[in-house]
Every structure is written in C-alpha cells, then in structure tokens.
C-alpha cells in the first residue's frame, strides 16, 4: 500500500485543441487534507473530475489506490468510486427526495443493508453534521449551508477513503462557512480519510489544509504548507493569498488599444 492514496502523474488535459492542464504532478497522502487552489477557470474542478474518472486525461495518468483511473472499465471505475465521496459546489441533492432519503440513497443503491440499519446509519451521519432534526425536510426547505451539510452527510454515507470537496465554501454566510470548515477537518480525522478540497477561499482553506497546491496557467505554480505559502514571495501566490487587484493575473482582460477602440465606432 503506497502512502499516497491519489497520485497525479504528468497529467495533461484539454479539449477543442486547447490544453487546460500541462503536465501536472500532485500527490495526496492518506489521512491528510490537501487543497487545490487557483483562480476561476484554472481547471481545479476538472482535476476532481479526472480523479473521479468522469473524463479521461489527454496525457499522463491519475492513480487512485494504485490503480490507473482511465485504464479501468466501467465496473472498475464504479469500484474505485465506491471509495470516494464527493461534495458538489451546490450540494447536488436529489430534489425529489427528503433529507433522510438523500443520505440513504447510496446505502440503498449500493448495499444490501436492512432498512432498520440504514435508518440508524442515516441518523448517525445526519447527527455528525448537526442536522438529525431536519431529516424529514425536503431540499427546497433547506438553506444553502444546510444543503451543503446534508450533501456532506451523503458524501460520507459509505465511509469513503477519499472525500472530494468542490468549492465547499462558495456562497455561504460566515457561520455556515465556519461550520463546514470545522466539519471537513473533524470528519476527515474521525474517518481516517483523505480530503481533497478545491477552493479559492484562502482563509478557510489555509485553516484546515495540511498541504496546498496552486494551479495557474495549466501547471502547478506553487505548493507547500499553508504557512510556507503565506510567506511566499512568488508574485502569483502573493497576489492570490493577499487578494491584490493587479499582478501576474491582470485586472484587464486582453483587449485592443483602449484609445483606438474608443475612436473606432465598429465593434
């Protein structure tokens, strides 16, 4: 058993002739919380989809628990996915099912557990995220933060080895953000799992991550512990971490000369 549960090796991915990732290398050690950070459109979520086998790399490989993901057939990928749990950006709860049924969904679909045991397990998972009392509600009756917590309970329903979080803090109020932050760390430690967080919220991510990768222009621009990166003098990392308006990532989208464009009436 290797010490890294997920390894990304010289990975390139692109479509329509444009490369989004150009030779990325990453390692996700067991039991750690690892963050992938970068600006919008830098391909962070695509990396999660590559790890989950939803898309295939153009070059290089992703290994999950020693197995090359894109070499697996459909059954092999489904077996690998049973080791994974994923929290989607907006929860992706099934809107026709109650909170209870949402969390019970993977148990009913993938196991032969009796309904009485599923009931106890669902209540335990919901209790872990503080929403046992909300098990009868429908997803439309939940706030954004509550929906994210239910989705988290569903993601950990089958005690996965890897939990992936796609922008877990996006659009949450400070209280919900703190709750999710705390849950990610505590659930990771309690389950002995490996967490992969994709985010651009520096403060929250740095608070819980053991290691951080910065992705920019299709490559790993920087990596290290949150403490190292806070001290980093690399222009991109400095701009990102301190939220500076201008820097290596320019404020202006590339455009023609301002003066000549104003004088020219044609668009």
């Amino acid at each position: 058993m290797t010490s890294n549960i997920v390894e990304i090796d010289n990975l390139s991915f692109g479509y329509k002739g444009r490369l989004l990732h150009k030779g990325i290398n990453m390692a996700f050690p067991r039991g750690k919380v690892v963050a992938i950070m970068g600006g919008s459109g830098s391909g962070k979520t695509t990396l999660l989809r590559l790890i989950g086998g939803q898309i295939k790399p153009t070059q290089g490989e992703v290994r999950v628990d020693g197995k090359v993901v894109h070499e697996q057939d459909r059954d092999g990928i489904f077996l690998l996915r049973r080791k994974m749990g994923m929290l989607f950006q907006h929860g992706a709860l099934f809107t026709d099912l109650s909170v209870f049924d949402n969390v019970a969904f993977p148990m009913r679909e993938l196991t032969d557990l009796p309904e009485s045991m599923i009931r106890d397990l669902v209540l335990m998972k919901l209790n872990a995220v503080g929403l046992r009392g909300a098990h009868t509600l429908m997803p439309t009756e939940l706030s954004g933060g509550m929906a994210r917590r239910v989705a988290l309970a569903r993601a950990i329903a089958l005690d996965p080895c890897i939990i992936m979080y796609d922008e877990p803090f996006a659009g949450l109020d400070p209280i919900s953000m703190g709750v999710i932050c705390d849950l990610i760390r505590s659930l990771n430690d309690a389950l002995g799992a490996t967490s992969i967080i994709v985010s651009h919220d520096v403060k929250e991510t740095f608070l819980i991550a053991d290691y951080v990768y910065f992705v920019a222009d299709g490559v790993v621009a920087a990596e290290g512990t949150p403490h190292d990166l806070m001290q980093s003098t690399l222009p991109f990392v400095h701009q990102f971490v301190h939220g500076e308006k201008d820097g290596p990532v320019p404020f202006h989208y590339p455009a023609a000369n301002y003066q000549s464009e104003l004088l020219n009436q044609q668009l």
Binding site: R81, R82, F88, E109, L110
Partner: peptide, 14 residues
C-alpha cells in the same frame, strides 16, 4: 444542470 446526474455517477450509481 444541478449536477444531480454527476452526483449519482460519482456515487457509482448508473
């Protein structure tokens, strides 16, 4: 649109 199908796929449910 709301990623429910992707969520299902990621749960190893076809």
């Amino acid at each position: 649109t709301t990623e429910q199908l992707s969520a299902m796929e990621m749960m190893a449910v076809n």
